[in-house]
Amino acid sequence: MKNPVIELIGLTKLYGSLKAVDNLNLEISKGEIYGLLGPNGAGKTTTILMMLGLTEPTSGKVSVCGYNATSNPVAVKQKVGYMPDNMGFYDGMNALDNLVYIGRLNGIPESRVKERAVELMELVGLSKAIDKKAGTYSRGMKQRLGLAEVLIKQPEVIILDEPTLGIDPAGVKEFLTLIKELSKQQSITVLLSSHHLNQVQQVCDRVGIFVEGRLLASDNIDKLSTHLFSREAHVVIITFAHPLQNIEEYNQQLLNIEGVNAIEMHDNTIEISCTRNATPEFVRFFVEKGQDIMGVQRKEYGLEEIYQRYFENTLTENETNGKSGSIFQRSFFKKIKK
């Protein structure tokens, strides 16, 4: 990881006594798509604001594209396109004018700015609504307009704060695909924050799990899951055409297979936990028994589980520290407010 595009060193931000970001160290290299994941109030937005010099860190250093974001924010903003989570446009102006305005602010010459704005509107699929007032735009359209605005300055780094918020599932997919294409073609570095885990899972090269201002883990999703669930078994779920009859007998025989340690049955599915990947053996076993297998599925640990796991860990940590007393206090929302 030579020459990271974004480099955070010991970044800390205090709001009064509340630690929004706690000694954060992170490096993101060129062309990478990095997902910053965490629940609401974890400090994701604060971290992003510090990267853009929109707020000052209490201690630590942020450097983006080699510039210090705190002391030289304008140089950083020339390279970075930022899409805030809750952005607004000038409602009285039409969408194209909004875009042209931002283009002009970025020093695009007057002769080219309009042409480029129209091109980008087409790119994000807003060519039909180009003359509509920005105030009439729906949430999803605004999001697309926001992306066009990020792209108009031809950034080296794109920072997206909750980019998928308020878009329908199909839109999310398009949006993320577009971002991925861009990143791959132009080797643009992308940092996106989200609490929608599975969406981010599709596009990110690496993810960082961010809870209560601390980066609990930062790696690609495969590694994260193996690291986390290495002690856990491989779980295979087999679905049959008809409910199984001689359950007890199968149970005994399956347990004899090497490594199998737990079996769970529901109507016509069976869930087998095993210390090694013995899927072929299970399939062979049931085929020999004359069962009609409809589907075999190896359970994979997605971001959801990873995230949950990390989150549970912090919860238990807190409990052992005696931070939370009653069950109510232990609940999700209370904890974040703290």
Binding site: K77, G81, P84, G146, E149
Partner: peptide, 14 residues
């Protein structure tokens, strides 16, 4: 309030 300030200040202006 409208969220335009943050967008504006994310541009390279002082």
């Amino acid at each position: 309030q409208n969220g335009t300030l943050i967008r504006l200040l994310a541009q390279p202006i002082y």
